[in-house]
């Protein structure tokens, strides 16, 4: 949707189909980046349920990764991660 629509091309009324924000990237907001350690992860889903940007990727009840296209790097996932040894399953690192 990089080209701006003219009024004749707009969807009816003041509407748009669901879920189009998926196409909008907010990953470039990040100053910190979450790093996921799959081997430490206990798949408790605490990061997933508390992610404001729906950016914890899950499949069949397990975490599979982080959606960096949308993750804004707030660090909630790392903060909430309950894993202690050998270290949190998610940590935050500075973006390059």
């Amino acid at each position: 949707m990089s080209k701006k629509l003219g009024w004749k091309e707009l969807p009816f009324g003041d509407s748009i189909k669901a879920g189009t924000a998926e196409q909008f990237e907010t990953g470039d907001w990040r100053s910190l980046k979450p790093i996921w350690y799959a081997d430490r992860c206990i798949h408790c889903m605490r990061c997933w349920i508390n992610c404001p940007d729906s950016s914890i990727e899950v499949k069949d009840g397990k975490m599979t990764g982080i959606d960096l296209k949308h993750c804004k790097g707030c660090g909630i996932c790392a903060f909430e991660c309950p894993v202690k040894k050998p270290g949190k399953a998610i940590t935050m690192e500075a973006e390059r």
Partner: peptide, 26 residues
């Protein structure tokens, strides 16, 4: 369980413009 919930379709996508760490979208 959270595991069961995580199998549901995500009803709020990423790509919205709330602040990083916003509680409202949670």
């Amino acid at each position: 369980t959270l595991k069961d919930l995580s199998k549901k379709k995500e009803l709020l996508t990423g790509g919205h413009r709330a602040c990083a760490g916003c509680g409202a979208t949670i």
